[in-house]
Amino acid sequence: MNVSLEEFDKAFENRIRLQIMSVLVANDRYDFNSLKELLNVTDGNLASHLKALEKEDYISVNKTFLGRKPNTQYAASDNGRHAFKKHLQALENLIKQQRK
């Protein structure tokens, strides 16, 4: 059965973005390289999805340097947490609807 995607957050349509958000909601913050390892994606791929989430104001970015290596930390913003919650709620509602 197909159902409408209207109540879904467009930003989370992409699987990797949803996965990034899951990690950031479960943790205070996460750095780029650890995220890359966890999600098993390429640098470019991860960077573009992070950029998209940043544009939506769902995550905050904190760039620092560890010695000469850049160390970028990402954290979920209140906006992002709220949106993620709503998205999960929408998924849940869908399941309930289909059960009926």
Partner: peptide, 11 residues
């Protein structure tokens, strides 16, 4: 949902 839960746990 299971991929979300899995990631939250693994992270």
């Amino acid at each position: 949902l299971s991929s979300i839960r899995n990631l939250m746990e693994r992270s």
